[in-house]
Amino acid sequence: MAVTNTLKELENAILEGEDDLAQSLAQKAIEQNIQPLNIVNEGIIPGIEEAGELWKKNEYFLPDVVMSAEAFKMAMEIIEPHLTAGEFGATGKVVIGTVAGDMHTLGKIIVIVMLRSAGFEVIDVGEDVSIATFIEKVKELKPNILGLGCYMTTTMLDMKDIIKKLQENGLRNSVKVMVGGVPTSQEFADEIGADAWGKNAIDAAEKAKKLMEGS
């Protein structure tokens, strides 16, 4: 019963965006010898998924989602060292970053949380990332998906060059490319040859899962 209560409290803490509480409940769950993967699947993920559902219903707005995402991160910080390799993050590997000259971070932060809650291993290569760095990271980390973000209409044009460079380096067939950010659109994604466009973080995670199903 105590175990069930802890996981339910953890779910609520994430839903309510109580990051400190989520962290202490994650610690408590470990101390109660609950299997780390169960803590993730029965406490942490239901909390962030419920936040996503409330977002879809206009009951949650961006501040609520951001607070839930922070609580998710704090809880995962406690649990991750206890997970065995490959136990979580088996859906696929995503390398994600913001293109050069651009500091698009907020959308990326939430996308990362949503991808992780969907079972992806996510490697964040940061902001203001050069084309060469993206290519290096794809070569080095061999992700299933490369996620590119931006918020300016000038910097978004770099995304086209990144896809071109992937082709030139013989990497295009080994990685799916997703794009997102305020100025992007499905038309733009189609135009530059991306595999998917994430309208928002929840949409991005859903489309990433579809890309994996099709790969």
Binding site: A100, G101, D102, M103, T105, G126, E127, D128, M152, T154, T155
Partner: peptide
Amino acid sequence: MIYGENSMPTIDFR
């Protein structure tokens, strides 16, 4: 700030 070669300056949120 970040001053891109071909883009608007932007605050470095890092």
